[in-house]
Structures are given as structure tokens and as C-alpha cells.
């Protein structure tokens, strides 16, 4: 349960952090170039994309871990009667 909770907060944060960083970068770009509000809007959108990229990477990482655990668990299946399992 603790592990699932940790995984959940991790995935939620990946998305939020991307948006925050993107919006912050856009904000500073605006105050530097005086292009308000377009820098922040663009930064927000880019940050959202970056957040989703991070999210997808984190999920793929987790999925790769699970499949490794499944591979490690495979020899145990061979000892059992396969008919009764499926």
C-alpha cells in the first residue's frame, strides 16, 4: 500500500512540476522581454507537454519494473501443473 501511494504521488507530481516550471520560465521570459502575457501562456502550454512527457516516462519506467518482476517470477510457474493454472 505504501509503495502504491508513493507511486501515485510521484506520478501526480511529475505533471504538476512540469506545468509549474513551464509557467515560471514563461513568467521570467515575460518580465525580461516585456512580452506579457504570451510568454507565460506559451510556457504554461509547453510545461504541460513537458509534464505529460515526464508522466509517460515515469509510467513506462514503472511498467518495465513490473515486467521484470514478472520475468523473475516465471520459473515458479513451471513447477506447477500448467493446466490447473489457466
Amino acid at each position: 500500500m505504501g509503495n502504491a501511494f508513493a507511486q501515485g504521488t510521484r506520478l501526480a507530481l511529475e505533471l504538476v512540476a512540469g506545468i509549474l516550471v513551464g509557467a515560471a520560465l514563461g513568467y521570467f521570459l515575460d518580465s525580461w522581454l516585456g512580452s506579457s502575457p504570451f510568454g507565460m501562456i506559451g510556457g504554461f502550454l509547453l510545461g504541460m507537454v513537458a509534464g505529460f512527457v515526464n508522466l509517460m516516462r515515469a509510467v513506462n519506467q514503472e511498467r518495465a519494473k513490473v515486467s521484470q518482476a514478472e520475468v523473475a517470477a516465471l520459473p515458479r510457474v513451471e513447477d506447477d501443473d500448467e493446466e490447473s493454472l489457466f
Binding site: 504521488t9 509549474l20 516550471v21 509547453l46 513537458a50 512527457v53
Partner: peptide, 17 residues
């Protein structure tokens, strides 16, 4: 820019988590 934002968000996710 997406990769840069993705890289910059690392310390935030690491610390906030």
C-alpha cells in the same frame, strides 16, 4: 524547450515528493 522544462522540473519533483 520541452526537454529543458522536463529537466528543470527534476529538482522540484524530487524535493516536493
Amino acid at each position: 524547450p520541452i526537454e529543458i522544462i522536463s529537466f528543470l522540473s527534476r529538482p522540484i519533483t524530487l524535493s516536493v515528493r
